[in-house]
């Protein structure tokens, strides 16, 4: 059975016709040519297909495209156009923020290279080797930082009753990122990249505190 659906992908509205059996991951890659989410295990065990749907990290391989009609999807390709890179709201402005034609090394600031701060941190800390898991890693990290800012606890959080943004030490980061495997074993540098971004957000948290539920 075919179904026509509409997705807003990295700020752009797309309306593919998909078989009901098509996953969100396959719709993005095979129908829409959005190749940044990767197919690793295709069974929800590796995290390579992680994208943000409505600002929350999910696995594209276990999501049916037809069940996401109307969804706002942000892949690693569109992360750089997020407003602050943290809350996952909207990919608005993506089209006006083209990275095409930018020469390597022409980075004039965190917002000028088209990269999300988390992506830049992965580069700065060498948080990858082959790069296959990286689009999923960065989407997961962006979603995870938003969850932490919203005060979500984790399996290793000592005090469940503590409110406010979660404090992300290394143990917390490792636990919260455990759904993304890296078979090259770049975990140490992925951890460093996410740790840096967690620290940046913790410093900024007081100013943004009012908006956090």
């Amino acid at each position: 059975m075919d179904a026509r659906i509409t997705l807003r992908v990295d700020g752009e509205e797309r309306s593919p016709t998909v078989d009901t059996r098509t996953t969100l991951l396959d719709a993005l890659r095979d129908r829409l040519g959005v190749m940044s989410p990767k197919k690793g295990c295709d069974h929800g065990q590796c995290g390579a297909c992680t994208v943000l749907v409505g600002g929350r990290r999910v696995l594209g391989c276990l999501a049916l495209a037809v069940a996401h009609d109307g969804a706002e999807v942000v892949t690693a390709r569109g992360l750089g156009a997020l407003p602050d890179g943290g809350d996952g709201n909207s990919g608005g402005g993506l089209n006006g923020n083209s990275r095409n034609g930018d020469g390597d090394g022409e980075r004039q600031g965190p917002s000028d290279d088209g990269l999300h701060p988390v992506q830049r941190a992965f580069l700065d800390h060498d948080g990858l080797q082959c790069g296959y898991c990286t689009p999923g890693q960065v989407c997961s990290a962006v979603g995870m930082l938003a969850e932490a800012a919203a005060g979500h606890p984790s399996h290793v959080t000592d005090d469940l009753t503590r409110t406010g943004p979660a404090v992300l030490d290394d143990t917390e980061i490792r636990e919260r990122m455990s759904g993304n495997l890296c078979r090259c074993g770049a975990y140490v540098n992925i951890l460093a990249a996410v740790r840096e971004q967690a620290a940046v957000r913790e410093q900024a948290a007081p100013a943004r505190g009012e908006a956090i539920p």
């Binding site: 929800g44 990290r57 999910v58 999501a63 606890p153 959080t157 469940l160 919260r176 759904g179």
Partner: peptide
């Protein structure tokens, strides 16, 4: 849930991954 039923929070957080728990 965190205040009254900590076992439930703990059990949920011990399961799956962040992405899967969002789904």
């Amino acid at each position: 849930v965190r205040h009254r039923y900590p076992a439930l929070s703990r059990a949920l957080l011990a399961g799956a991954s962040g992405q899967l728990r969002n789904m």
